[in-house]
């Protein structure tokens, strides 16, 4: 299943590494380092999955999560952060995040989360 995925992390290398790996799996990726640019894209297009960092200077990942949930409840949001705490993880999940991954992570972890999200989307779309 080919998915439309948006990746938002203020570190360029994160988008680059994820893009290189996930495009091999047949997904279509758009990577952003600026939350504002990402929001612009989110307003224009519906993504299947959004992978967002939590701690960013301008707008944090929780705000992105809230925005995505409001605009497209179908979209699955996967939160990634190098500053994970139980409080932040629970807040993300309570606000509707699909998964929460702490940095550093192996590529197979995010691939696994995307597979689970794809399965959930398939189920919601009626098989």
């Amino acid at each position: 299943m080919s998915l439309e995925i948006l990746i938002l992390d203020d570190e360029t290398i994160v988008g680059e590494r994820l893009q290189a790996s996930l495009e091999k799996d047949g997904h279509s990726l758009e990577a952003f380092t600026s939350p504002r640019e990402a929001i612009k894209s989110l307003n224009e297009k519906v993504f299947d999955i959004v992978v967002t960092d939590i701690r960013m200077d301008d707008i944090d990942g929780i705000k992105i999560l809230e925005l995505v949930r409001e605009k497209s409840p179908r979209t699955k949001v996967i939160m990634i952060t190098g500053y994970a705490t139980l409080e932040v993880a629970r807040e993300s999940l309570t606000k509707g995040a699909f998964d929460f991954i702490a940095k550093p992570f192996k590529i197979k972890e995010i691939r696994g989360a995307i597979e689970k999200a794809a399965h959930a989307l398939q189920m919601e779309d009626g098989g």
Partner: peptide, 21 residues
Amino acid sequence: LAEEAHAQGIKLSRLEASIIK
């Protein structure tokens, strides 16, 4: 303390997230 741990490269994120999962 958690901020300082993150800054010093302690893998606190992994520990905290492991509780959820």
